[in-house]
Design a binder for these strands. Structure first.
Length: 319
DNA sequence: AACGCCACCAACCGCCTCGAG
DNA sequence: TCTCGAGGCGGTTGGTGGCGT
């Protein structure tokens, strides 16, 4: 007999998530925190597999996720890390805290793989193939050492995270991105900003959704965004009470959008300053000596090392 | 306008890992 | 030590939109 399904397939909804489902999920996680995914469909009434809920959260709704085009820096990081770690997307994602493993994986498969292939095929005609081969060999030679270094890095980060667990800054116990969750910008003491990050994500989602639904009127009156009220009317319904959902959502959407516009102004300011600066710079908290050591030694140093490697290793000259 | 092709990406599937009992 | 189940991970698929013919 095969492995039993992770969840009862009967009545399980598949396919794209609706904004209503997103809101229900986010509000539930806001209240209970991520984890115990088994109970999420039961407690929320979502007709989704627990895995699906977890994936939707980690890949899309989780606070602090950066979407859109990858920067040159991110692209280089991915290329180097892939060379070091292979297709360990979760490990790679730990170095790019604002990106999900799924995003990175998709970006690799759709963009970078082709790009590198193109570059490699373009350089095949070069006369110095032997040099490249040697470079490649040396890369393989040092790969295990670097993997060890990476593991040490991750271990340090895990310790770092553990040390900061009792801080009030950690509202959602992030398990997936140990590298920066402890100094992630969204984990500031201000819970509003944390939740706002997720509503911001949803706002974008809903905004697109609304564009596709021009018959839904926008209400300009601003009301405090009470997601629980919304869920109370929305979660118990499926298709039958669409009007109720739509009505309550309009208020929510307006709040979301007004918030989103404020945030977008900030992000625009950041963009105007150049490359978007790491969010932890925006919310610096006093650090203890050990934490300083960890942050100084583990994350930036290692990232620097990784980037410096580009000068020495086989990808040299690709950019 | 209709069709086919392609790129992109959200989501699914199934195996693996790890911790609890 | 073993078993079981929840969660994590990476490969793959399917839907969608853009573009060319």
């Amino acid at each position: 007999m095969g492995r039993p399904p992770c969840c009862d397939k009967i009545g399980i909804k598949k396919g794209p998530w609706t904004p209503e489902e997103d809101i229900i999920l986010v509000s539930y996680i806001q209240e209970h925190g991520p984890g115990n995914w088994r109970s999420v469909p039961t407690n929320t009434g979502l007709m989704r597999c627990s895995k699906s809920c977890r994936l939707r959260w980690t890949n899309y709704l989780r606070p602090g996720i950066k979407r859109g085009n990858f920067t040159d820096h991110e692209e280089k990081m991915i290329i180097h890390l892939q060379a070091l770690l292979g297709n360990r997307w979760a490990a790679i994602a730990s170095y790019l805290p604002q990106r999900t493993d799924n995003d990175i994986k998709n970006y690799w498969n759709t963009h970078l793989k082709k790009k590198l292939k193109k570059m490699q095929s373009g350089s095949d005609d070069d006369d110095n193939n032997d040099d490249k081969l040697n470079s490649c060999n040396s890369q393989i030679k040092g790969q295990w050492e670097r993997r060890l270094q990476t593991d040490i890095h991750m271990a340090k980060q895990a310790l770092c995270e553990a040390l900061s667990l009792d801080k009030p800054t950690q509202i959602f116990p992030e398990t997936k991105l140990p590298s920066t969750s402890s100094h992630n910008p969204t984990t500031t003491p201000n819970q509003t900003s944390l939740y706002a990050s997720s509503t911001e994500n949803i706002a974008k989602l809903l905004e697109n959704w609304m564009k596709k639904s021009p018959n839904i009127t926008t209400i300009t009156e601003t009301k405090p965004f009470n997601i629980n009220n919304m869920v109370a009317t929305g979660s118990s319904s499926s298709e039958g009470t669409q009007s109720t959902i739509t009505c309550t959502q309009d208020h929510a959407l307006d709040s979301l959008w007004s918030f989103n516009s404020e945030r977008s102004c900030q992000s625009e300011e950041n963009t105007n300053l150049g490359e978007s600066k790491p969010q932890y710079q925006e919310a610096q908290v006093p650090l203890m000596l050990l934490e300083n050591w960890l942050f100084d030694d583990a994350a930036p140093q290692c990232n620097e090392d990784l980037m410096n490697m580009s000068l020495e290793e086989s990808t040299e000259g690709l950019f």
